[in-house]
Design a binder for these strands. Structure first.
Lengths: 191, 191, 191, 191
DNA sequence: GATGAATGAGCTTTCATTCAT
DNA sequence: AATGAATGAAAGCTCATTCAT
């Protein structure tokens, strides 16, 4: 693993566990097995490091969601793919989930979301495609005619809550339970 | 307003905007219009201040939810009361919403949630009663027979997502849209 | 007990136990059962309070030493009176001993000693009289012809060391042992 | 001189002159010619710095006492070596003397003395050996059969008093006077 | 390129002192 | 006369960042 990747991994794990201010640069360097100064050869400052860490995680997440994408199946099945895929990714990558949680509720994440939404180029959690699925579903009369943002909130909000409860140990989520949750979520958005 | 209240308010607002470590005690004191040392006459340390701030907000939230509670109406209407009430509170009190977001995703909030869930005495976001509403609904065959935690996630997750999108300006939520969202959420949990 | 006395007592005890910086004015006031501001009605500031506390203890010590003073006995017996009297006072008043220890090794005590020695009016630990006893003893050929300061060091140094060891529990000093120590000390200074 | 040594020296001098709380870390750093944060690269906190400073001084003192130790001479001459050696060290190193005075009368020193005395491994001021000299002297009938602690008090108490009087300028101690004092002290402990 | 020792601004907290009541 | 709430300067300590090696 090259130094840059090791630094990103160390940052992600540390921030997931301890938050931003529980993750000094020296500790990140230490965990990455590099010198403290070395981080600055790859990232201009801590803000940049954090944003790059986010991008790396987002990239992997999008990669997983793109796998086995049932492009030729119904809107419902494609949404299902995302719902189950996201829960699966989070459960298998609890560090990444926690990191994203830290990130989204911080100034970093808020700025990012604002930028994405207003620039219309959003693919947050793969959402651009999710958005288009909603649009197709609405057009086809399959999905409630609500603002996309509302549909998105129903979709993503439940999914994140459920994943968090699993990761923090409040419930044991298996495949069947995840599917039941996805079905319930579908009930929320289907017409 | 007495000094204690002014300090709590200043802490809540600053933390809402800047997070815990973007809120030095000196700045809180400054915004509250008191000396730095004065905070320590009311709160033992920063942790205590933060937890007391949470309790104050939680108290007000529970107060609002208790108003006009339709105790003699159907389970659906009572859940509706909570859903709309929570969204209403958050929209009218965006600082409080942001503060709670900071708090819940911090070690403070995680510890609290763990304690509440496992001690069974939870009234997180008024959730004890929500929990009992779910139980009644399940018993009556009105609500899906899913784990309470899942139902809770569907309920609270969507509600928070929607509130956040409004507060961050991604959507303009009015009474009608809130009700439509509540209806959609009901579709998710109803049998 | 009047307020002034209560404050002096509280200061002495607290300083004995915790040193100067372990004794905030607020704590002294608290222990004395008065308001924090009240101290300043009796003492200009903390320095004055500490110096007055010293004077009070010194006064009581001198009072004890003056009791049953064998003015008409031999130099040896009069020195003996001081030696045993000082040890006795310290053992019965360990707080006072510890306070004096704090005081003597602090800037307060050094300044005081300097002042006393150079002003020739010293009666530090009753020392003026001790000094005159040494002078009489030297003149009579009973005591070694050494500088008074040296004799004083032999006398007071051993006495304090022994008292401290008792107070800190390193030895159990009874009357007989105290007398043996006094005898040994006499051997040091006698010709 | 390396940074660690400069910090130890600065701490020792400042504490000697002003005591522990008259010696802020910032001032120590300043006098040592290093940044405030630098101290913490070498010492975990102020307590550790103080204890390490003590150990450094103690080490040098023990080194001096070990020089030219007359191992094959009489008990009296060996005690003499310590007595004169200690006075000599203190007079040549008044800062170190004052520092040790601060240290011994502080919680640090009391804890240390307690530990040393009860653990029997004491070499406080080189005292383990002094203690064994007392034991040999008692066994040989040369020294009074008093508790070691008492003998030690007679020995060390006078020595410290005399050194302090010299350092504070109350007397001018030369070799001859030091020896006379040592002789007087021997009179105190010899049978 | 890589390092990690060094830095100092900035943090939380304490406490001697003041002053309105 | 007595109070104790309020203050803010100053303390110990952390950590993002730099730079000589």
């Amino acid at each position: 693993m090259d130094k840059r990747t090791k630094i990103l991994k160390a940052a992600m794990e540390l921030i997931a566990e301890n938050g931003f201010h529980g993750s000094p640069m020296a500790t990140i360097a230490n965990r990455a097995g590099v010198g403290a100064g070395t981080i600055y050869r790859y990232f201009a400052d801590k803000d940049v490091l954090i944003n790059e860490t986010f991008k790396e995680v987002e990239g992997r997440l999008n990669g997983v969601l793109a796998e086995n994408y049932p492009a030729d199946r119904s809107v419902r099945e494609r949404l299902y793919h995302y719902y189950i895929g996201l829960i699966g990714f989070f459960i298998e990558n609890p560090m990444e989930f926690k990191f994203l949680g830290q990130y989204y509720d911080s100034p970093y994440g808020v700025a990012l979301r604002r930028e994405k939404i207003f620039s219309q180029s959003s693919n947050d959690y793969g959402s651009e495609t999710i958005k288009s699925l909603f649009e197709q579903g609405i057009a086809a009369g399959e999905i409630k005619d609500l603002p996309i943002v509302i549909l998105f909130a129903l979709f993503i909000g439940s999914l994140i809550s459920v994943s968090r409860d699993h990761i923090f140990g409040f419930i044991q989520l298996d495949r069947r339970l995840a599917e039941q949750t996805a079905d319930a979520c579908w009930d929320a958005i289907k017409r």
